[in-house]
Amino acid sequence: MHWYESAVWIPNVITFIVMLGIGGKHFVNAPPSAPVTASNVITFATTAASSVISWCTMTPDAGVYHSKKASSLRIFLYTYIGLFIASITVHFLGVIFAASAPNVPTWEAGFDNGNNIGGLINAILSPLGGFGKFLTALLALSIPSACAPTMYIFGSSFMTIGSFFAKVPRYVYVIISEAILIPVAIVGATQFYATFVDVLSLIGYWSSAFAVIVLVEHFVFRKNDFSSYKMEDWNQPRRLPVGLAAVLAFFCAFGIIIPSMSQVWYTGPIAKAGTGDIGIPAGCAVAFVVCLVLRSIEKSWTGR
């Protein structure tokens, strides 16, 4: 899977370059379709952040490639720059093509009022004929590059919960995750963009709280000292933290995330007050405070 992930981006980059070459002449400095408000900016920032934060649960697996001699700063910069460049480039491409679509009839028809990203890409590449369809197909086939790591982590995460789950072959979890994924894909196929944003935001809510809890453990309670992690204890539950503080902090975070979220299917009272979707920053703040307090108590009682 790591080999696949390291190579699958190449067809995408080629396709994006071709799209820029063909569609560049149609780019315009489009005015906003509606007044820009602070609420809109915050909600958009939350969605954009969700697409990057969601990778945090997968980074530990990539850690097997890190040299023990590499500094923390170096690993941080490599990871941050890699995510930043990849994300900002695609975000800019999406913005400029979507903003220019209303001025090109074929693009607008393919885009279908902003609900069909695949149709927009196909319309942009249509002047190339069969080669354009081939590039569109390649781009579509790269979508598993986002799904496969999630399915992989779904299995490995269950296996870390308890010894019972570890006895189940990993491919069983992959099959279960696929059984969940296929119905969601079928339902969301007709409204891909709206479904994608809704699901992505949900992932961002919980993964941001998860990330804060991990960072609190590492920087506050382990003093940024990697030697405090005893590798030989990885499968010895009695030597590991109980985890109750982390679980409670996670659920407490959702106590503020839910009233602070702003989605098509639900808008909380705090978001309705005009703040926009502040679910991620609010959830992070609560997770930080609660984890700090409860983990201190947990550690004083259990000594681990």
Results as ranks from 00 to 15, higher is better:
residue 194 A to S: 14
residue 105 P to S: 06
residue 63 G to C: 13
residue 197 V to Y: 01
residue 118 G to Q: 00
residue 241 P to W: 03
residue 29 N to F: 11
residue 278 I to E: 01
residue 103 N to H: 10
residue 49 A to T: 11
residue 95 V to I: 15
residue 55 W to T: 06
residue 229 Y to N: 10
residue 194 A to I: 13
residue 28 V to D: 04
residue 19 M to Y: 02
residue 77 L to N: 08
residue 248 L to K: 10
residue 103 N to L: 04
residue 9 W to V: 09
residue 81 I to N: 02
residue 91 H to P: 02
residue 287 A to K: 08
residue 300 S to I: 06
residue 44 F to V: 12
residue 259 P to F: 01
residue 267 T to R: 10
residue 104 V to R: 08
residue 297 I to N: 04
residue 174 V to M: 13
residue 81 I to S: 04
residue 266 Y to I: 12
residue 7 A to M: 14
residue 221 F to Y: 15
residue 262 S to K: 15
residue 59 T to Y: 09
residue 141 L to R: 06
residue 204 G to Q: 03
residue 151 M to W: 10
residue 196 F to L: 13
residue 15 T to K: 02
residue 157 S to P: 01
residue 163 S to G: 00
residue 195 T to Q: 08
residue 203 I to D: 05
residue 6 S to Y: 05
residue 155 G to E: 03
residue 156 S to E: 08
residue 79 T to P: 08
residue 300 S to V: 06
residue 296 S to N: 07
residue 216 V to E: 08
residue 98 A to N: 05
residue 6 S to Q: 13
residue 46 T to K: 00
residue 73 L to P: 05
residue 100 S to E: 02
residue 32 P to T: 06
residue 14 I to A: 12
residue 125 L to M: 06
residue 186 I to H: 04
residue 8 V to T: 14
residue 169 P to R: 03
residue 148 A to G: 04
residue 5 E to D: 12
residue 227 S to V: 10
residue 151 M to E: 07
residue 189 A to L: 15
residue 90 V to L: 14
residue 185 A to V: 10
residue 132 G to W: 09
residue 216 V to W: 09
residue 52 V to Q: 02
residue 23 G to W: 01
residue 107 W to Q: 00
residue 175 I to Q: 09
residue 245 A to V: 10
residue 6 S to E: 09
residue 199 V to F: 14
residue 87 S to P: 03
residue 220 V to Y: 11
residue 225 D to K: 11
residue 182 I to E: 09
residue 99 A to L: 11
residue 72 S to M: 14
residue 93 L to P: 05
residue 31 P to R: 05
residue 72 S to W: 06
residue 42 I to Y: 01
residue 118 G to D: 02
residue 268 G to W: 04
residue 164 F to Y: 06
residue 144 P to L: 03
residue 62 A to T: 11
residue 59 T to H: 08
residue 277 D to K: 05
residue 65 Y to C: 09
residue 177 S to W: 08
residue 142 S to Q: 14
residue 65 Y to T: 14
residue 42 I to A: 14
residue 48 A to M: 14
residue 92 F to D: 06
residue 214 V to P: 01
residue 51 S to P: 00
residue 255 G to L: 15
residue 18 V to F: 01
residue 26 H to F: 09
residue 160 T to G: 05
residue 238 R to K: 14
residue 302 T to D: 08
residue 297 I to P: 02
residue 175 I to W: 12
residue 190 T to M: 08
residue 258 I to D: 07
residue 70 A to C: 09
residue 271 A to P: 01
residue 155 G to L: 03
residue 64 V to G: 07
residue 120 L to P: 01
residue 128 L to A: 10
residue 133 K to C: 03
residue 132 G to K: 10
residue 243 G to P: 13
residue 30 A to S: 11
residue 98 A to D: 03
residue 255 G to I: 12
residue 163 S to V: 03
residue 146 A to S: 13
residue 52 V to N: 02
residue 44 F to W: 11
residue 224 N to Q: 07
residue 35 P to F: 03
residue 174 V to Q: 11
residue 214 V to A: 12
residue 66 H to L: 15
residue 77 L to C: 11
residue 224 N to C: 04
residue 146 A to T: 13
residue 265 W to Q: 15
residue 132 G to Y: 06
residue 258 I to K: 08
residue 115 N to F: 01
residue 115 N to Y: 03
residue 72 S to I: 13
residue 221 F to D: 10
residue 156 S to L: 13
residue 100 S to Y: 02
residue 220 V to N: 10
residue 148 A to S: 13
residue 224 N to K: 09
